[in-house]
Simulated scan of single mutants.
Amino acid sequence: MQKSSDIRTGRHCVFMMHVHLVFVTKYRKKVFTKRLLMDTERYMRKVCADFESQLVEFNGEQDHVHLLVEYPPKVAVSKLVNSLKGVSSRMLRKEHFSWLKKFLWGCRLWSPSYFAGSCGGAPLQVIRAYIEQQNCPK
């Protein structure tokens, strides 16, 4: 059996798990510029690494972001989402407060809801292409 580079092994399991996440800004405020998206991606890559996960693809528009994350079975998606949103919000407010203050509602950057979709049914290339085609702000 040929081993795929996407398949990972744990102590007692072999896995290839991906989730497509979408986070929307509070009240769909058009917060993101290209620079803020780049910083958000950097923070989210670090959070994923802390969870032994990998941010495979990231992109967004002015009011939302898409992530394709590969993660191990021991990670609860809800805990990963909580950290991704919490850390990114804190760091963006810390570094870009003068820009963000006009968009924030009670210091909240993200809507409390999110989308999480399993990527087992569609080929990952299709999801990756969809995320790459987002209209990133200039």
Rank of each mutant, 00 (worst) to 15 (best):
S98Q: 15
C48M: 02
K74L: 02
L55W: 13
S118T: 13
W99M: 07
M44N: 10
G86D: 03
R35E: 15
M38E: 13
V22D: 02
Y43E: 15
P73L: 03
F58R: 00
V19Y: 02
Q125R: 06
D50W: 14
Q62D: 08
R35P: 06
Y43G: 12
P112K: 11
D39Y: 05
E70Q: 12
L55Y: 12
L80C: 06
G117S: 14
F115L: 15
K101V: 09
G10C: 11
I7V: 15
F103N: 10
S83A: 15
H96V: 04
E95S: 15
V56M: 06
F32Q: 07
D6M: 11
E132K: 15
G10P: 09
F115M: 12
P137W: 03
V31A: 07
C107N: 13
R8D: 02
Q54T: 14
C119R: 02
R45L: 10
M16E: 15
N135S: 09
D50A: 10
H96I: 03
T40R: 00
L124P: 01
C48Q: 03
A76W: 02
L109Y: 05
F115C: 14
V81N: 03
G117Y: 06
V22M: 06
V69I: 15
G120Y: 12
L92H: 09
R35C: 10
S118L: 13
F51G: 01
L55S: 00
L92R: 02
D6Y: 01
S98P: 08
T25P: 02
K79M: 04
F97S: 12
K138S: 13
L80S: 05
E70G: 06
S111L: 00
R45T: 04
N59C: 10
R128C: 09
D63P: 07
Y27V: 05
S118F: 12
V22S: 04
C136H: 07
H18Q: 12
S88V: 03
R11E: 13
N82Y: 11
M44C: 13
F32Y: 15
A122C: 13
L37C: 07
C13E: 09
H64G: 13
H66M: 02
I7D: 09
L109G: 12
Q2K: 14
W99D: 07
G120D: 12
D50T: 10
V75D: 06
E41Q: 15
H96D: 08
K94I: 01
V75H: 12
V81T: 06
M17H: 09
Q125A: 07
Y27T: 01
V24T: 14
V87P: 08
P112E: 09
L92I: 10
T33Y: 08
T25A: 05
Q2I: 11
K138M: 11
F15N: 04
K30P: 02
L67F: 09
K94L: 07
V47F: 03
S118Y: 12
F51S: 04
V47K: 04
T33G: 09
K46A: 11
